[in-house]
Design a protein around this nucleic acid. Structure first.
Length: 551
RNA sequence: UGGGGUGUCGCCAAGUGGUAAGGCACGGGACUUUGACUCCCGCAUUCGCAGGUUCAAAUCCUGCCAUCCCAGCCA
């Protein structure tokens, strides 16, 4: 496959060849520590860090913490943890925007002294009205042309806490008639008496994103500041700031389309709504697209990285089918996850002609096709469990598992033939009686169409299996007018409390979990240490091409 | 009556004037002690629409249409 370059790589290469620009690449991922990272952030991070890696450059991790109202250490720790988990190492280049507050303050003075910024004493409402509308120009503030000296003094007083919250702001003097709303004298600094999680009460003025971000990039020596598409019309302002504040390093902002994923929601606000309304367990609910949730679900960093690399980079608004994400997970797990026997919804199987009080041990490859993965044994006896789904009393034409009179292979063991079905008073199947062919051990004997898995009753370990499916039924929950509560998939989480697992699962360490043969990939959930029965989360099911045929 | 984006198969996405890559999904088949995996085969006479330039256009020009973002003292 030919590796074509995406538009960012093309731009970066042009810059590298430009003798007037740096001959290296240095990028940054700048989350605001006001929430948990999700798969969309992972995409952004992988693009940003991937560009640095591809061109032999460096990358930083930065907390964009310029708003004391929302940010918290809890999130910075979680973010660092998630970034590391994805496999990225920022070495000693971890930054806080809040560490640059003093430098930013000085840059604001440069603007004031150049007559490019002024103190506006109007309130927020007035400023909003003066901004005009999309199709009509704004009007200049009466403070716009006040003497530089006045603004300088007032700005110092703002910093010293001599003025009330909201009583005045520092604004850039650009163009109130610009078609680009961002250029209509944007606010650069506001007064806010709010304790910042890092700087405490040192500051009562805080810089706005449009002023702070380009400076952070400049201070850190970022060459390419990659961000999502909604910042595209902020770029003129970004460039204006670095041009007029006398910073010595000029970064370049390039925007790409953010990730959309079908059947889920991605914005912090919406995720918060799900968590706070108790519609999911928590931020790490395995059904959420948060990195913490996906981690708990059993997604691997490798699967997420492959996913991000394969969906590509463009500026086209997109919604990737969740099935592509699942495909990437299956691909990784199929290659590495050890196989194990587990019956999720058991019914008893008794082998009539097999002796009591004895057992045999059969072996299977941990990962078929990978000799280095080893093998493990599992026991077989007269009393087993099989999957309820693997038996059908009146099978359709395409069903080739167990049914009355039919023969199937018990995986790795014997051929058995169903002889009798025992039901309880409610008509539910309780037990299957079968006979086995003693000459069919380990694959010998006739070929049969069906092979089913089983667990020996004697050695089985109880477990709860959490089966997950789409959180939302709708492809785009936001396009649906109904509240989220009514859109949730009632079967997004099905708890099976009577699963029977082969004991090896508990003896063998496998951080990526196991493939429960013929069913899917599962990982042990360690969150609740107090639970008596172990819990397993289904990361993703196996594909299933069985289609009942009706005639 | 503003500014900035984007429009190639159901979903991503290559393609940058030479006659539509690839992946996912889907359908069919082979293989199979996982109906998994793997392997074959099929899947856009057409690139938002309409004109134009050219021997030749998804690619160039003109016009139009659709759709997304922007009026926080959020990021």
């Amino acid at each position: 496959m030919t590796q074509s370059k995406n538009f960012i790589e093309i731009a970066v290469e042009e810059d590298l060849e430009n003798p007037d620009l740096p001959n290296y690449v240095h990028t940054r991922f700048p989350p605001e520590p006001n929430g948990y990272l999700h798969i969309g952030h992972a995409k952004a991070m992988i693009i940003t860090y991937g560009i640095a890696e591809k061109y032999g450059g460096k990358y930083n991790l930065r907390m964009d913490d310029t708003n004391p109202e929302k940010e918290d250490v809890e999130y910075v720790e979680a973010i660092k943890d998630d970034v590391h988990w994805l496999g990225f190492d920022w070495e000693d280049r971890f930054y806080y925007a809040s560490d640059f507050f003093e430098d930013m303050y000085n840059c604001a003075h440069v603007l004031i002294d150049k007559g490019l910024a002024y103190i506006d004493e109007q309130n927020a409402e007035t400023i909003r009205q003066q901004r005009g509308a999309l199709t009509s120009p704004g009007t200049n503030s009466p403070y716009r042309d006040r003497p530089i000296e006045e603004s300088r003094t007032l700005f110092k007083e703002m910093k010293e806490g001599k003025h009330a919250d909201g009583s005045m702001v520092l604004r850039a003097k650009i163009d109130m008639a610009s078609g680009n709303m961002n250029m209509r004298d944007p606010v650069l600094y506001r007064i806010l008496r709010e304790t910042h999680y890092r700087t405490g009460d040192d500051w009562v003025i805080y810089p706005m994103y449009d002023f702070a971000h380009p400076l952070e990039d400049a201070f850190e020596g970022i060459t390419h500041s990659l961000c999502s598409i909604e910042f595209e019309d902020h770029r003129p302002l970004y460039n204006w700031v670095v041009e007029h504040t006398d910073v010595t390093h000029i970064p370049r902002q390039i925007e790409f389309a953010r990730l959309g994923l079908s059947h889920t929601v991605m914005s912090k606000r919406k995720l918060r709504q799900l968590v706070e309304n108790g519609l999911v367990e928590d931020w790490d609910d395995p059904r959420l697209p948060t990195l913490r949730g996906m981690r708990r679900r059993g997604y691997t960093p490798k699967a997420i990285r492959n996913f991000a690399e394969r969906i590509g980079v463009s500026k086209v608004p997109n919604t990737v089918d969740y099935r592509f994400l699942e495909y990437c997970l299956r691909e990784d797990l199929n290659a590495r996850a050890p196989r194990a026997m587990a019956v999720i919804d058991p019914i008893k199987l008794t082998i009539r002609n097999y002796p009591e009080e004895t057992f045999e041990v059969f072996e299977m490859d941990n990962v078929p096709g990978d000799p280095d993965s080893g093998r493990h044994g599992y026991s077989f006896s007269k009393h087993l469990y099989i999957e309820r789904e693997d038996f059908m009393e009146t099978p359709d034409k395409n069903f080739h598992r167990l049914s009355p009179g039919e023969t199937v292979r018990l995986m790795g063991a014997y051929l058995i033939t169903c002889e009798e079905v025992i039901k309880n008073e409610n008509g539910e199947i309780e037990e299957i009686i079968a006979s086995y062919d003693p000459d069919s051990a380990g694959g010998k004997g006739k070929k049969v169409k069906g092979t089913i898995h089983f667990v020996d009753q004697e050695t089985a370990v109880d477990a709860d299996c959490y089966l997950y499916d789409l959180l939302f039924l709708a492809e785009d929950p936001d396009a649906d007018e109904r509240p989220y509560e009514e859109q949730l998939n009632p079967n997004s989480r099905v708890i099976m409390e009577n699963a029977k697992l082969e004991p090896w699962i508990f003896e063998h360490q496998s951080p990526i979990g196991f493939q429960f043969v013929r069913q899917g990939y599962f990982v042990r959930d360690e969150k609740d240490q107090s639970r008596k029965t172990p819990r397993f989360n289904r990361s993703v099911s196996l594909k299933d091409s069985y289609r009942p045929e009706f005639e």
